[in-house]
Amino acid sequence: MLPVKVGTAGLRQSDALFYHIKHLPDASKNLMKEIDYRGKLLAIGAATRPRPIEDSYMPVFMAAKSYGETLSNLLNIPFYEFSHQEGHIEAGLWSIKREIEKAFMVLHISGGTTELLKVTTINNRYDIEIIGGTGDLSAGQFIDRIGIKLGLPFPAGPSIEKLALNWEGTTAIETPIAVQGNKVSFSGPETFLQRKIDNTVSNEEIAFSLLQCVGKSLYSLLKNTINNNPVEDLLIVGGVASNKQIRNTLNNLSNEFKINLHFGDIKYCSDNAVGISVLCLKNYLRRKQLDC
């Protein structure tokens, strides 16, 4: 994990890029102790932008692009570029051993993203259309901001989940849900819960109520959007999707709507790298097949 100062919500892009460049040599050294790559490394894949669209850019992704392309040139092997979002989608499907050929819906919920997507698979790549999502904070930012206010380390998701599990009450604080059509807002609920922290409410109750609010907000967002976008499958991925309380809330969707609901395996919800690896393998094999 990259170093984040206590009381802060993540890193600036310039700092994140610096730490990637600083730590990658050590990471690669440790990796090579376990892998004999000589003559066996056939292709390199990397996430080089946030989303698979032309204008998508964040400086931190330049570390992966620079290292990946340089190694590709030195070893004379192909370099495949993907987006961070494609990595999460592929990791989710791979983790549950599914291939979905028809258009399907994806709820991508993480530290920086809360987007509802309509996805079509084309030649081992994903054509993605944004059909809904947040108008301000992502679900992950909402969780992290409340967590930091409670004095928890960043990212706050795991600590928030532990606190929520220790809440012995049966009901949550009635936190406002701000969903209109295909847009969800978390800034109002954040302000509401921030004020509750200043009162005599336990951290456990705050954490439980926070996750309940996130789950109900996303449920309402999906409910508003599913009817206008008829698909058979809904995949939920991203770091926030690993939270069991949120999963339990969203599980009711499959009962209310005729839709196949898929959650990425908890272990791989936040593991973007495994998705990029699978996409790299698929595209390498496809290119090899076309060359034959």
Results as ranks from 00 to 15, higher is better:
residue 128 I to C: 11
residue 126 Y to N: 12
residue 243 N to R: 09
residue 113 T to L: 04
residue 186 F to H: 01
residue 80 Y to K: 13
residue 288 K to E: 13
residue 84 H to R: 12
residue 71 L to T: 01
residue 274 V to T: 15
residue 257 F to V: 11
residue 81 E to Q: 15
residue 106 V to I: 14
residue 220 S to A: 11
residue 4 V to G: 06
residue 78 P to T: 12
residue 126 Y to M: 13
residue 216 K to W: 04
residue 46 A to S: 14
residue 195 R to D: 11
residue 264 G to C: 01
residue 212 Q to G: 07
residue 51 R to M: 08
residue 281 L to V: 08
residue 35 I to C: 01
residue 141 Q to P: 01
residue 279 L to A: 07
residue 6 V to C: 01
residue 274 V to P: 07
residue 80 Y to C: 11
residue 163 L to N: 00
residue 33 K to Y: 00
residue 229 N to F: 14
residue 49 R to T: 02
residue 113 T to I: 03
residue 67 Y to F: 14
residue 226 I to F: 10
residue 78 P to E: 12
residue 75 L to P: 02
residue 262 H to S: 02
residue 211 L to A: 02
residue 11 L to W: 04
residue 23 H to C: 03
residue 272 N to Y: 05
residue 262 H to N: 11
residue 98 R to V: 12
residue 167 W to N: 14
residue 208 F to A: 08
residue 90 E to D: 05
residue 182 N to H: 08
residue 124 N to A: 04
residue 171 T to I: 02
residue 282 K to A: 03
residue 252 N to G: 02
residue 80 Y to T: 11
residue 292 C to R: 09
residue 24 L to E: 03
residue 9 A to H: 07
residue 49 R to H: 11
residue 192 F to V: 08
residue 54 E to G: 01
residue 168 E to P: 00
residue 28 S to L: 15
residue 252 N to A: 05
residue 44 I to E: 07
residue 236 I to V: 13
residue 282 K to T: 00
residue 71 L to H: 04
residue 41 L to E: 08
residue 275 G to W: 10
residue 160 I to M: 15
residue 285 L to V: 11
residue 231 V to H: 10
residue 238 G to D: 13
residue 25 P to Q: 02
residue 117 L to Y: 12
residue 240 V to T: 09
residue 23 H to A: 03
residue 55 D to V: 07
residue 219 Y to H: 10
residue 276 I to N: 02
residue 50 P to M: 09
residue 82 F to W: 08
residue 261 L to K: 04
residue 249 T to D: 13
residue 285 L to E: 15
residue 13 Q to G: 07
residue 107 L to W: 13
residue 180 Q to T: 14
residue 147 G to M: 03
residue 141 Q to F: 03
residue 82 F to T: 08
residue 159 S to R: 04
residue 115 E to N: 13
residue 169 G to E: 09
residue 273 A to N: 01
residue 156 A to G: 12
residue 275 G to C: 10
residue 166 N to R: 14
residue 179 V to S: 06
residue 265 D to K: 08
residue 18 F to R: 13
residue 116 L to M: 15
residue 100 I to K: 14
residue 263 F to P: 07
residue 158 P to Y: 09
